[in-house]
Design a protein around this nucleic acid. Structure first.
Length: 61
DNA sequence: GCGATCCG
DNA sequence: CGGATCGC
């Protein structure tokens, strides 16, 4: 499933933006909860970065 | 430190 | 191949 919904994120450049993740996956140590992580691209710098996304955000490609 | 992911 | 992501 492609990523469509925007997420409010703090970019490495220090801006608060709504971005659509490139990809979202679950990062779980065995036996505990962990977090959902999104891969994003900073429109300012063009650089990729990872940050937590809300638990209710769907996994996507 | 663990977990998945992939850019640098 | 390591960094960086988060919370436990």
């Amino acid at each position: 499933m492609p990523c469509t919904e925007k997420v409010k994120v703090k970019t490495p450049s220090g801006r608060e933006l709504e971005l659509v993740p490139v990809k979202v996956w679950q990062l779980n140590p065995r036996g505990r909860k962990g977090v959902k992580v999104g891969l994003f691209q900073d429109p300012e710098s063009g650089r990729y970065f990872r940050t937590k996304v809300p638990e209710n955000y769907p996994l996507c490609s």
